[in-house]
Structure formats: C-alpha cells, structure tokens
Design a protein around this nucleic acid. Structure first.
Lengths: 220, 220
DNA sequence: GTAGTCATTTGATATGCATCAAAGACTATT
DNA sequence: AATAGTCTTTGATGCATATCAAATGACTAC
C-alpha cells in the first residue's frame, strides 16, 4: 500500500502479511479485551468498530472499508479496546504487529506510513468530536454522507450513488443520534430533493446542498 | 520517558530534544495549518487542543498536562490539524519528528513507545466519542473530573483536590455542553455534597458518588 | 481604591432530539 | 406463497439541554 518502494522492498512488505482471514457478516474480527497481535488491512468488505460502556451502551467509533487498516486501538495496552464487526462478508490481511515494527525499522518509508495511518485516525476522530459536540442532526448526517461517498469515490465507485452497509441505528450510534432521528433526517433530505433514498440505497442528487448543510457559513 | 533503556540509549533519546520552548498563557504552541516538524513533550504547564469548523465553532479535543506528548495530529499531512493553546505558562521540549523516527529505527523500545503514545490517543478519543454520543451532562462532568484527578494523582498531586486550568466554557466545549450546563452540573454536585467548588478550585468529597454517576450500572 | 473586563451563577423560557407507539416494508425461512 | 423477524418510517409527546437574560463575583490595569 505505501508507495515509493523498490521491487525488493515491496516484496518484503508483502511478506509481513501472515495470512488472509475471511469474516462473515455479523462476525467479529477482534473484540474488546482480546490480546492484540496484529493490524488488519481490509481487502474486501465493510466493518464497524465500536466501544461499549459498562452499562451496555454502544458507541460506533468508525466505519472501515477496503484499503483501510484497523486494530491500532490494541497497541497501547496489548489488548484490543474495541470490537470490530463485519457488516458484510469480508476478507482481511493479518499483519502481525511485531513484524510490522521489525520491518519498519529497516524501511523508513514503511515507518512513516505506519505513523501517518495512526495520525490520520487521530485527526479523523478529532472531526468526529466536532460533529458530536457542535453539529445538529442534519449537519451530522450530511457530513456522514459526504465523507462516505468521498471515500467510495476514491475507490473508483460512484460519486453520487452508494449502498449503506449499516442500519439506521448504527449510523445513529456513530453520529450520536437515535435511529428515528436519522430516519427523519433522511426523509427531510429526500423531500427537499437533495437525495433519493430507497432503503439502504442512497443517490445524492444535490451534493452542493449537502455541503451547504454541513457548512452553512461557506455560502454567505 | 520510556523505560528499559541503557544509560547510553537514554542519552541518545535525550539528544532528540532540540530545545526547550516557553509558552505564555494564552499563546499557541502550534496552530492549524502550520507546517508540522516536531512533537512536543510538556515539561510544565497545561494545554488545550482544539479544532475549529469553517463557520467558527470551536471544539476542544483534549487537555494535556506535564509528561504528555502533543503534536501527533500533524504527522498525516505534514501540517498541524488543530491548535494547541497554553492554559498557563508552560515549558515544552521540542522533538523534531525526523529525529524521533531516525532514532526509533535503532531503538525498538523507543519505536514501541511512539506507537503506544499514538494508540493511547486513539483510545482516549474513542472514550470521548462515547461521552459525547451517549452520556448525559452530569455523567460527562463526572467522567471529566475523575479522569483529571486520576491523571493529576499519577503525577503526585492530590487525589481529591484540583485546580482547573480551563474555563467552564472550555470544559463545555470538550464535553459537548454549554457553559451554563457545566456550571449547573457543578452546582448540583456541590449541593449534593459530592464536591466542593470555589471558582476553579474543586475538592472531591465523595469520589464514589462521582463514579456512580459516571457508571450507574456497576452499583446495581 | 476604582473602573472595567471577564468568568460564573442562577432563573425563565425555548427547542431539538429522545422516547413511546404503531404501522409499513423488506428479507429470510419454511 | 405464507410467516416471522428485522429494519424503517412516521406521528405524538416529553425532556434535557440550549438560549436568553441579568446579577454577582473575581481579577486587571491604572
């Protein structure tokens, strides 16, 4: 995945991948408390990560798709600090973290890549905090849809159409909203002609309108 | 800071520190958009980090104290993605990130330490997401106070008394609440005899009660 | 010491989202 | 094709927190 390697280096990076693992929809890739050994590169499929409070409340902390890395929550304590659940049948590459560290001591490019991935996650979570702390329901959903479609587009998929892999409840958990509120926001966008919604199929008709909702100030 | 080094290794780690920098209360250690060059180890003082939305809303993403590292938000894009403001006169050690990377390629202990620091930040932000997404005002404040006093205690300070370095508004921003709500929650805790509040001086009278508020379920 | 500023508290009211409830739509199973 | 189960939508109502407002208290600069 990182660029700028020689053929030989690339080969060594590939060798870090210990094995492929298939995860069926609904199954856990790893769970809270489990010993941490590896990072996982998602090859296909879609995951959610979530944390649970002592009294059982669940907070979805992220949705991850092909090409993204999960498991970094486990490094600090050698145990995972969240659950990773496949939202559709998935395949991941298991990368033992000890091997990643060994090789990244030899390849500065890999080392930098690992640091960037973790930094990116920190920055992403910063913006989620902004969402949860300051935005209203429709702003949150607009931001969510724009982010999702942007990531899908970067993978060669449509800029305007997407299939949600998660329920309204999971979207709500991620955005700090109840499922009914998410549903109402979808309906509102739909009535306003901004999107078309048919179950989990969403078509973005007016991306500009979504951006405007996400960030009203830009348009003054 | 990391343990398990020989005297010689320790010396090399120390040499990564390029210089000390003093930051006066209210001043920026770094700001959003600024080129990223270094991580900073806080020697003395107290910081907040915050992000700002395009329309000017501010979200405090964390409070950092002596012994903690800030700046990791800048690695991903070579530019900082938040502001770091000193809430009291402070002194930091500047550690050029290129040197950190160079040395951590040689010292696996340092490499692991860097990874853990970043992972810890990811996990911390996960719990803030839980706070913002699922908890009510008093639960958030209880969690905040417990976290703060625990970190201070780890630094040899009191388990029960603390001086807040931030305003009610900054606490509110961190917790996704308005300053009035924070103030009311303080008053409520105070009326109930859980804490004593005199301006920014807080004395925790009944830590158990705070823990119970934070996590009611444990006590059933 | 005094004026001025900023931070905090407290009260009254408003509002956005949660909660409760029920019906409808889709999916899987038999 | 019928049935059960899950997910989603929509409506009615309630509540936690935001908003607006004003008073008080602390701190700063002169």
């Amino acid at each position: 995945m990182p660029a700028g390697f020689t053929v030989d280096e690339m080969k060594r990076v590939d060798e870090v991948v210990e094995k492929r693992r298939r995860i069926k929809q609904g199954e856990l890739l790893f769970s809270n408390g489990e010993a941490f050994t590896s990072l996982y590169a998602i090859r296909t499929g879609f995951f959610k990560t979530c944390v649970t409070s002592a009294d059982g409340r669940e907070q979805v902390t992220g949705f991850q798709m092909a090409g993204e890395i999960i498991g970094m929550d486990g490094i600090v304590s050698d145990h995972h600090n969240c659950n990773a659940v496949a939202l559709e049948d998935a395949e991941v590459c298991e990368m033992p973290f000890a091997s990643v560290e060994d090789l990244s001591r030899e390849l500065p490019g890999l080392q930098r890549h690992v640091h960037k991935i973790m930094s990116r996650e920190i920055v992403r979570e910063n913006s989620v905090m902004m969402l949860l702390g300051n935005m209203r329901a429709e702003e949150r959903l607009a931001a969510f849809l724009l982010n999702l479609v942007q990531r899908l587009h970067a993978r060669g998929l449509s800029q305007s159409e997407l299939v949600l892999r998660m329920t309204r409840e999971e979207i709500g958990s991620y955005l700090g909203l109840k499922l009914e509120t998410v549903s109402r926001a979808f309906s509102k966008f739909s009535e306003e002609g901004i999107i078309e919604v048919k179950q989990r199929h969403v078509k973005i008709i007016a991306p500009e309108a979504l951006k405007k909702i996400f960030n009203p100030q830009t348009y003054f």
